[in-house]
């Protein structure tokens, strides 16, 4: 068994990669959030003209592999004259993907808000848009927190996929260091530890957030 080879000088490089990972995750989850809410609203409140394309979108991005979606954006779009940087491709592909999943979570949450809420809002004279904005969505957002948190952590892990288009995120940086020094095992044990700490930190923060915004009587179906 050959000796373990890991230099402390690797750590700052990995930290750099970590930062890129966080950036990509934050960017794609935000894109996914905006698009996801729109898709969900489209499915719930849109007529057939709107809800069907939304459904098709969701089925496509949930039914096909993320890696394929990434390659479609990074390698495929240039066929159509669209050249995006690796970073933008990564964020776009991940964002489009998570939007489809978030759309389903939001849809479930919106539909979990009791019917009477919309009726009460309309009876006050609110327009549909106002009712959605002031009554439905605030409740839906609280209901969706557990699923959304889950999705965020998932995207953090899946962001590692961008290493395959040569981005130097935590995964990509790890691969580069390992390829140069032939110590894949040691490097990726450390990379794994980085992710573990990240995931732990993120889940704790999200749990804290959930507790902060909790309202008595309002939770996901099945919760008190």
């Amino acid at each position: 068994m050959t000796g373990f080879y890991f230099e402390w000088s690797f750590l700052p490089k990995l930290a750099q990669g970590l930062i890129l990972t966080i950036e990509i995750t934050a960017a794609c989850i935000s894109l996914g959030f905006v698009l996801g809410v729109l898709l969900a609203l489209g499915r719930v409140y849109g007529g057939k003209l709107v809800s069907i394309p939304c459904s098709i979108y969701i089925h496509f991005f949930r039914g096909t592999p993320l890696l394929t979606q990434l390659f479609i954006v990074y390698f495929g779009l240039p066929n159509w004259g669209i050249h995006l940087s690796a970073f933008l491709s990564g964020v776009l592909a991940l964002g489009l993907n998570t939007a489809a999943y978030q759309a389903e979570y939001f849809r479930g949450a919106i539909q979990a808000v009791k019917r009477g809420q919309m009726l009460a809002a309309r009876s006050l004279g609110m327009s549909r848009v106002q009712a959605i904005r002031y009554v439905i969505l605030p409740q839906a957002f609280r209901i969706v927190i557990p699923s959304w948190s889950n999705e965020l952590i998932l995207m953090l892990k899946y962001s590692s996929i961008v290493f395959s288009i040569s981005l130097l995120d935590l995964m990509g940086m790890g691969k580069r260091i390992a390829a140069r020094n032939f110590n894949y095992f040691e490097v990726f044990v450390v990379v794994a530890l980085f992710y573990l700490v990240l995931v732990l930190g993120l889940s704790q923060s999200l749990r804290w957030l959930e507790r902060r915004v909790r309202v008595p009587g309002l939770g996901a179906p099945g919760l008190r």
């Binding site: 044990v189 794994a192 573990l196 732990l200």
Partner: peptide, 11 residues
């Protein structure tokens, strides 16, 4: 559950 699939594959 917390380690990304790609990292596990490499390991």
């Amino acid at each position: 559950r917390s380690i990304p699939a790609l990292v596990l594959l490499f390991l």
